[in-house]
């Protein structure tokens, strides 16, 4: 498969922290300027036009990114990139690299990992790692 170079750890990261393409776009936008504190309107304004996300959706997504230890909020509800560990930071770097180099593969993988029940059927045929 063309996406076979993605490690298991990266797939797990996507599965748990990046459930959809808009969340990936959001995370990568924040990640590109790691020192910047973003307000919500700024974020929504700078997302690519084709990203389909509502204001409420963005709030929910940011909260879930925070709970995964990827961003932090200040008292004024502004948000900044902050990976809780070096391992997480490395995964976000991988994500950014994949997004630039193989966006179609990445997007397909995000969709694929979302369909976990269907995937569980295919994974049932693996002998190891259960």
């Amino acid at each position: 498969m063309e996406d076979s170079a993605f490690s298991e750890a990266f797939c797990r990261f996507i599965q748990t922290a990046v459930p959809s393409v808009p969340v990936a776009e959001l995370l990568l936008l924040i990640f590109k300027q790691p020192e910047r504190w973003w307000t919500l309107p700024e974020l929504l304004g700078e997302l690519p036009r084709d990203v389909n996300i509502t204001e409420a959706g963005a709030v929910t997504s940011l909260e879930s990114l925070r709970s995964r230890g990827l961003v932090e909020f200040d008292d004024n509800k502004r948000v900044r990139y902050r990976a809780a560990s070096d391992a997480l930071d490395a995964q976000v770097h991988t994500l950014a690299q994949a997004y630039n180099e193989r966006p179609v593969t990445l997007i397909r993988m995000i969709y694929a990992l979302r369909d976990t029940r269907i995937q569980s059927f295919a994974d049932a045929f693996k002998f190891r790692k259960r």
Partner: peptide, 15 residues
């Protein structure tokens, strides 16, 4: 057997 043991481990009803 593979589907059955996977169901026991994951609890995914489809399995």
């Amino acid at each position: 057997v593979l589907l059955g043991s996977s169901y026991m481990h994951t609890g995914v009803r489809m399995l």
